[in-house]
Amino acid sequence: MSESEQQGSERKGNYALEQLKQLRARRGAGTPAQIERSKRGKEMQNLILKAIADEAKTVPEIAAETGLPEQDVFWWITALRKYSRVQDEMKRGDFVPYRKK
């Protein structure tokens, strides 16, 4: 454990919880639009990850299966790929198939 990590675990307590409590009281945990956006985002992630859990699929294939717009599917694939939840497979024609990691 590094020196900073050591100090961090010594400081551990409910400092962040206290701060978050104060902020939630002051401004709430996001606007209704932000909360809705986050909920919708989670739904889309789940649908996409389910579609590519067992088999790698291209963006048009995922869109056809989930009913989501191709552009949204690709944006979420990009996001999930960046955070190592999705991996690329060998290109098929003009499209890359993606699989859940």
């Binding site: 900073s4 400081r11 962040a16 978050l20 939630r24 945990a29 996001g30 932000q34």
Partner: peptide, 21 residues
């Protein structure tokens, strides 16, 4: 402006260096 105040980052931080205030 876009943080939903869930606290996941603060829980994960090994050095407890996130200061929301």
């Amino acid at each position: 402006d876009n943080c939903l105040l869930c606290g996941a980052c603060a829980k994960a931080c090994p050095t407890q260096c996130i200061n929301f205030l």
